[in-house]
Nucleic acid binder design. Sequence first.
DNA 1: CATGAATGAGCCTTCATTCAT
DNA 2: AATGAATGAAGGCTCATTCAT
Lengths: 214, 214, 214, 214
Amino acid sequence: MNTHSFLVLFGRDRRHKINKKEKNNKYHLILKAAVKVFARQGFYQSTVAQIAREAGVADGTIYLYFKNKDDILVHFFSYRTKQVFERFRAEVNKSDNSLDKLRNLIRRHLTEFQRDRDMAVVYQVETHQNSRLAEDQIREMSQMYQDLVSEIVETGQQEGRIRKDLYVGLVKRFILGAVDEVINTWLHSDKNYDLVSMADPLVDLFVRGIGTSD
Amino acid sequence: MNTHSFLVLFGRDRRHKINKKEKNNKYHLILKAAVKVFARQGFYQSTVAQIAREAGVADGTIYLYFKNKDDILVHFFSYRTKQVFERFRAEVNKSDNSLDKLRNLIRRHLTEFQRDRDMAVVYQVETHQNSRLAEDQIREMSQMYQDLVSEIVETGQQEGRIRKDLYVGLVKRFILGAVDEVINTWLHSDKNYDLVSMADPLVDLFVRGIGTSD
Amino acid sequence: MNTHSFLVLFGRDRRHKINKKEKNNKYHLILKAAVKVFARQGFYQSTVAQIAREAGVADGTIYLYFKNKDDILVHFFSYRTKQVFERFRAEVNKSDNSLDKLRNLIRRHLTEFQRDRDMAVVYQVETHQNSRLAEDQIREMSQMYQDLVSEIVETGQQEGRIRKDLYVGLVKRFILGAVDEVINTWLHSDKNYDLVSMADPLVDLFVRGIGTSD
Amino acid sequence: MNTHSFLVLFGRDRRHKINKKEKNNKYHLILKAAVKVFARQGFYQSTVAQIAREAGVADGTIYLYFKNKDDILVHFFSYRTKQVFERFRAEVNKSDNSLDKLRNLIRRHLTEFQRDRDMAVVYQVETHQNSRLAEDQIREMSQMYQDLVSEIVETGQQEGRIRKDLYVGLVKRFILGAVDEVINTWLHSDKNYDLVSMADPLVDLFVRGIGTSD
DNA sequence: CATGAATGAGCCTTCATTCAT
DNA sequence: AATGAATGAAGGCTCATTCAT
């Protein structure tokens, strides 16, 4: 007996809630199917019919949950990706040490993107597009990430673990860019290596650079 | 015997020369127009008619120089972008010192992408797509870039300027990723700052990292 | 034996009455809502969902009272409009004098159409359509109207008040057409004048024409 | 050898003109086909595919000549119907006598609408619609017609042939309405009688009315 | 070589209708 | 009886590509 049947048997009066959940389920069902299709073929190469087929619903059903095709992408960013980025913050907060914060962030980043490859692909593509359909959502997430790095750098500088002569704006791009590229390479590879194992070497590069100390 | 066969028999040489030149001109004309349109609207959002209008030719003319719409993008990568990447090599060769090589590479990279913004946009988008129309070309260029970094790292290690305990494969992504992100941010900004000025601080980060030495 | 059969056996009368009344209520509710929506947007531009919303019922409920969308229009004509046209007859019967009959008819016509603007619009549109969904109903009403005019003319001819050298078939169209156009103009105006006030001048035109007597 | 090949052989220098005409022809071809389909099924029941088939062109070709489906109707009114209404004016100008002017107008009206039945149907439907796609064009034509009637009435009043105690605004609707209804009835009949033969009896009704003189 | 009118496959979206609840 | 989520057929429109001139 699983959680669901438990609710059915003992939680009858929660009927409305269950319905709510089922409705929610279809929303998520379509969203997940859409991201899968987008990941495989790209947004513009994907058809609503393909998404519907992937989700196992009729074409028209899509429009009960999303305004139009574009809207699916917007929802993906404002729901799924935002969710992931909020986990990043939680991870950073787990430690007080700046370098641990950084390591936690990178590890989590790679972990989440490895776990949900479809999300990773769509995220990569869309954030590098010029005319971004989910412009606002992307900007918001980017800001969230940069704030985390800012916080890490500031903490590190106070601790004396991070250099004080840094242009923080550049550090943000430096870190995000490197992580993105590691993910991007993984996505275009055969993916038969562990993405998360890149975290520690990467952090090492961030902190110590490639140069010798002298 | 019609007009055409007359020219074929008696006007061959002259005709061929003129055609060659015109063809070349129009080929580049269309290519440039296409990249401009792609940069503005994305590949799939751009229409052949728009490219033709931008180039000042008829729609049908496009098909005298390119097999189809996809082919334009392939040509862009195999012609224009390859050209740029070859300049990177030349730049790296200008110095014997590994860190100078690196600095030269990054500077040239930023210089070229700042100079031709349309190319930059199309390059960014296309290299992050999953289903890459110009798969082969992109792979080739990526390889070219990575070879440069490999060479720099090896040189540096021999010189004692670059750490020996590095996973070179990761260093490549580390560097390319950071540069890409700096460019990407610039492309999505108001572009009223000098991209090339990011080169030296970036190289400094690559070499020394963000950590304090102790 | 279930709840339903219990009611069938012991509660027949009461149940039927209630149902009949509720059904009737909802039937009229939907019909009125439909006409309102049709008047605003035209039949084909109106959706069943809009009608349902306007009536405050669920989409599916419509189909408990009407076979399909077309059927609503048919019912409108066979119920509402027919009702109106029957009042015309009553009005004509109120007088024995042919010209009074005519005046009463025109007045009533304008009065009813001014009172129920939605009906007026739908009637106007539908009677001028080529492929009439409510073909039979419209034909029947048209016949009803023409019979009234026939009767008026015949009475008038016997009284010596109406010319005997008339092609009665044409007179019918002459009168109905003029009234229709007066209504049509009113419907497309700002409607801030009294439609009924047109009755007497109109009857005057019907009777005396625009020419001088000599 | 047919007409076409004759032109090809001997009429070469008219090449451009022929093209121009053919182009024009396709515009008219589609317009005519569209009106035919609209007349048969109504605007909203007609599909672009049907129009294309009727015109013998591809669906997409429609959009080379018209912005969208609505635009076809607008063009119909601003081109074809306007043309007809301008002939009305010419006809009215043919005589100086007010009653002859009126007779000429009515005759021409019935003649043109009998000649082009498709136009007649579309005109009837569209002018009685509430939400008129060709609102402006219809208003303009209506005005044109009313101006003609105004002119006729004024002339007649000066001549002493038309009563001076008339509300001219009503006379316009009185006349147009009756004519419209005569046409409307004809359109919904088997059309095996001559519409134009209604002109004289109708004018007689307009001028003398149905009443006896005393 | 160059043109651009014509094509028609394909896609997004709407909406009348059904049916499980 | 009533609901409204789900369906899927159908239609307007776009646009890459062709080909007669």
